[in-house]
Amino acid sequence: MLVCHCLAVNDREVKAAVGQGAATVEDVINLTDAGALCGGCHPSICMLLGEHSQGDCGGDACLAGSRVLCGDRSSV
């Protein structure tokens, strides 16, 4: 699945970054470039971070503006 549409980064690349220890959106941006431009994929990145830490997006990983969208996705 394409996560970052601006820079064409898929979920496998983001998951690999999480596997390498990325714990925040900022970390994922630094490791993969995903989320570096418009920010529209930050909720998706949060979700992938959340999946990794068993549903807990973890404070600063979750941008305030994205929280509702994150919650919507993880609750279903």
């Binding site: 699945m1 549409h5 898929n10 529209g40 909720p43 998706s44 979700m47 969208l69």
Partner: peptide, 10 residues
């Protein structure tokens, strides 16, 4: 102007 993530499969 609000969207959920648009999930594009490869």
């Amino acid at each position: 102007q609000r969207l959920f993530p648009v999930e594009v499969g490869e």
